[in-house]
Design a protein around this nucleic acid. Structure first.
Lengths: 190, 190
DNA sequence: CGTCTATTTGAATGTACTCAAAAGCGGTGG
DNA sequence: CCACCGCTTTTGAGTACATTCAAATAGACG
C-alpha cells in the first residue's frame, strides 16, 4: 500500500525531513476493508484515526429508534474517526463502515501522542486539520439551519459529486436529515 | 481588565513561563462592548479571535431572507470568531453581537501567527481548542439530525442553563432552527 | 407613561414523515 | 443465463410537525 498520498497530505501544511517521514510511516498500520465492512462499531473503544488511501468510508450515528444519521463521508485523502471517543479513549458513538473496498492507514492515539512530543510539527498539522474540520462542521450547522432540504441536496451534489455518485440515496437522505422517500420526491420534481 | 481568566484558560492545556505569559498578554487588546454592540459585522474582514472575559456574545448568520440563525453563544472563558473568515482573512459571513455588556480580549491573526512561531506551545493549545470546537459542532450536527425540536430545546437548557436565562426565546429558537412561535408552543406544553 | 419588542395564542397552510405497495436493480446460485 | 431474493427507489394517501400570518398580551426601557 502506498504512503505517497498521506505524505503529500502532510506536505500541504508541514515539511518533514526524510527521517521524520520514515518514522511517521513506521507508525501507520495499513488495512484493507471490504465493502460493508466496519472500521469502527458503536461501543468499541476508538483507538485510531484513519487516513483514507483509496475507497470511501461512511461515518453514521444510530439513535434510540435505530434511525441512521450520516455524519460524514470520507473519500481518498480524508482523515476520519469518532473524534470525541478517539480523544477521550471512550466507547464510540459512531459507526464507520466501508462503502466500497477501501485502503486505510491507521494511526493510534498512543502513537499520535508520541508524535506530538517527538515531532512538534505534528501539533501544527493537526491544529490545521482540526481547524478545517471545525469550519466544515460549522458550515454544515449553518446550512442545516438556514436551507431547505432541496437546497441542501443540491449543495451536497455540487460539493461532493464523486460521493453523490457512489452512495445510495438512502445514505444521502440520512446525511441531509430527511427520509429516503422525501429525497425521492425532491429528485422527482425537475 | 483582568488577564487571569485567559491565563488560566491557557493553563488548562499548556504551561508557559512568566516571560511567555507577559509576551502573550502584550498581544491582547482589551475591549468593552455595550449590550447590542457588534464585535463583528457580516462583510467586515474578521481580524481577531475573541476571548470572552465577562458577559455574553452571540454569533449569528443572516440568510438571503434575513432570517437569523444563531451559530453560537459565547460566555466567559470561551473563544469566538468567524473562524473561516479569520483564517482566510476574508469578509465575515457571521455577525457577532454583545448580548449583555461584555469584556473581550482580542488577538489578531498576525499576532497569532507570530505566536505560533515564537512559542510553539500555542500550536498545541489551539490544536486542542479546535479539536474541542470540532467535536462540539459535530455533536450539534448529530443532534440536529436525530432529535426533535423539543428534545433539542431541553438539551440546550440542560447544557447551557446560564445562557438560557440570559437570552431571549427568539434567540434560542434561532439556535434550535425553529420559529419563536413554535418554541412558545413547546414551552407551553408541560 | 408610551413605545418598541418579545411572547403567546390560534387558524390556515406547507413541509416532511409514516405506512404501504409496487417497481427497479444487483447479486447469487441453480 | 435466468430466476429468485433482498434491498433500494418510487409513488401515493393520510398524518404530524412546524411555519406563516395576524392579533392580543406582556415586558423592557427610556
Amino acid at each position: 500500500m502506498s504512503f505517497d498520498p498521506i505524505l503529500s497530505n502532510l506536505r500541504k501544511h508541514i515539511a518533514l525531513s526524510p527521517a521524520e517521514e520514515t518514522y511517521f510511516v513506521s507508525l501507520l498500520k495499513p488495512k484493507r476493508f471490504q465493502k460493508k465492512e466496519f472500521i469502527l462499531k458503536e461501543g468499541q473503544v476508538c483507538k485510531h484515526i484513519n487516513f483514507v488511501n483509496s475507497g470511501l468510508l461512511r461515518a453514521f450515528y444510530l439513535n434510540q429508534e435505530n434511525k441512521e444519521s450520516t455524519i460524514m463521508f470520507a473519500i481518498s485523502d480524508w482523515w476520519v474517526t469518532d473524534m470525541h471517543c478517539f480523544l477521550e479513549e471512550k466507547p464510540a458513538m459512531l459507526n464507520i463502515q466501508s462503502v466500497s473496498e477501501s485502503e486505510v492507514l491507521q494511526l493510534s492515539k498512543i502513537d499520535l501522542d508520541h508524535l506530538y512530543i517527538e515531532i512538534p510539527k505534528f501539533e501544527r498539522f493537526f491544529r490545521i486539520l482540526m481547524q478545517n474540520a471545525y469550519v466544515r462542521e460549522q458550515l454544515r450547522v449553518i446550512q442545516n439551519l438556514s436551507l431547505s432540504a432541496e437546497e441542501r441536496y443540491h449543495n451536497f451534489l455540487a460539493k461532493y459529486p464523486q460521493i453523490g455518485s457512489q452512495v445510495t440515496q438512502k445514505q444521502i437522505a440520512s446525511y441531509l436529515g430527511i427520509t429516503p422517500e422525501f429525497l425521492s420526491v425532491i429528485r422527482g420534481q425537475k
